[in-house]
Design a protein around this nucleic acid. Sequence first.
DNA 1: ATGAAAGCGCTAACAC
DNA 2: GTGTTAGCGCTTTCAT
Lengths: 339, 339
Amino acid sequence: MATKRPLTLRDVSEASGVSEMTVSRVLRERGDVSVATREKVLTAAKELGYVPNKIAGALASQRVNLVAVIIPSMSNMVFPEVMMGISEVLDETPLQPVVGLTHYKPGKEEQVLYEMLSWRPSGIIMAGLEHSDACRTMLKASGVPIVEIMDVDGTAVDSMVGISHRRAGRMMAQEIAAQGYKRIGFLGTKMPMDHRARKRFEGFTEALAKNGIEIADQEFYDGGSALAKGREMTADILHRSPDLDFLYYSNDMIGAGGLLYLLEKGVKVPEDIGLAGFNGVELLQGLPKKLTTMDACRKDIGRKAAQIIATRCMDDQNDAPQTIELEPIISLGDTLMRS
Amino acid sequence: MATKRPLTLRDVSEASGVSEMTVSRVLRERGDVSVATREKVLTAAKELGYVPNKIAGALASQRVNLVAVIIPSMSNMVFPEVMMGISEVLDETPLQPVVGLTHYKPGKEEQVLYEMLSWRPSGIIMAGLEHSDACRTMLKASGVPIVEIMDVDGTAVDSMVGISHRRAGRMMAQEIAAQGYKRIGFLGTKMPMDHRARKRFEGFTEALAKNGIEIADQEFYDGGSALAKGREMTADILHRSPDLDFLYYSNDMIGAGGLLYLLEKGVKVPEDIGLAGFNGVELLQGLPKKLTTMDACRKDIGRKAAQIIATRCMDDQNDAPQTIELEPIISLGDTLMRS
DNA sequence: ATGAAAGCGCTAACAC
DNA sequence: GTGTTAGCGCTTTCAT
């Protein structure tokens, strides 16, 4: 089987005896075409197995129905859910998401953005608000709608939709302080580039301070199975500070590990030690006790972001930049005492 | 801020006083260009914030360094790992992966493939061996290297790399029978389109039969949190068939749910009941007991598939189709007795 | 080492 | 309702 030249419109045109232009119209369902010619064209195209060349189409029409989605990672459960929200909305439009991963590295982010922009997407959805100057410049120069997602604690290039992680941290601290916990430990990741985790932590300590409480101890991890790390870190921090009465985890996975560990040890949760995580992952439904956590409205964020892009691209309404702040929802669970 | 026309090569050409052609050469690092002009061009390009238009570039050069990766889903931990293997290899080349999701629906698969082909990718990596006739036709007509991954029990359009799921099922059955378990239950998903799970089940029952054992009971689920479903299903099947002494789960997540449930109930695992799953997810590291499972070599599959595509695209060696069968590795864990 | 001309496969804009 | 013409922004090829 020789490597064959891919089929072109011209091939379909010749096979059907209709001009290239009309073939193009039929295939794009644009403009009026008589039923007879339409049939001829469709038949010819199908028989040949013709697949339109979007590269040429995009160049000619100056339109690419692609939305660049730039996120840190796909492996921690949080972004797949955002993606679902995005797809749900874009599926109703001719737009298609294309994702690029940054792995929380600013350098990679810049590179991925450049790469994406070189395909001239119709819109951009990007996680976070902190980007290099180069990124901001490219974004502004792109001339397409941009939505920064997940976070609203900062300044957006264009639109943003997310939650306030500072506020989320404060809310959880309030809840914990209100239940009378005093000796609080914080367990998180070692990622300096995870700005949202950082903001949560800042809000958390700030609200604790207002209640006259200081973080008693902290522990950070890096890589490996989060569930296993949650166990280890919990063991370590309690070994070092046995008098802790509450553990705040920066994500649900390590929280779940901690919970499993404490339960095995026979520690009474939440009486002896209270626990809380962040994110509301589906996994938690299957745990022996429901971990107290906070839902970051991930799917909703995806939906809202996609909606902004879609209306701006389709209706071509050059809308003003929007800011949508969603309310993180606390899920009390069974690992925090309730008065 | 008026919507600005995106920059073109011409803009850089004018700004630097160098012909478009030479600018193009500098930007692509092809052909000899004097250091002086090179500097001029680079400076101008950076100052303007020029981003090359790949659409035009691809059309002119008839080359698109994109590899289409078509997989069912990103949310069950198995494909993200395959993606890592793919990226790892493609990162060393000019090729870039672009993923499309089928959600285990043949109709969607066809649609996604068509969409992808219309961008004229340099290669295609596709999960599974069972595709509609339309898909096979498109694949063959595409004229680019194709690697079907995950499974080798069947016929590939071109190359394939994966494990034999039938064999994996047989291996686990052997192990279970060898340990003297007799009353075996199977718990899986309701997905008729998950051919690999089906093949594992077939191999499993076949090998059991050779040992004079028949599946004693089965249970299927559909949607929801896999961990929670694992609990429910385990409760249900044991309620119905209290005499079961082994449970084989079609994936590790429901297996983990079952394990957690049984441990809470005070059931002795693996003495009273043995347990096994499939896939070797990282999560398992944090469980109270290590679930017996089988590693499907997902990352390796990704790597090998990407290598095939890369060599065929780059070195342009029109290599013959390859078949690479990887060995699934059984991980004995603590939920199966060991003699 | 640099430039000019001719397309790549399609669609916008206009004829008819 | 259908066809013609002229590009889209690059790269290839060939001159210089």
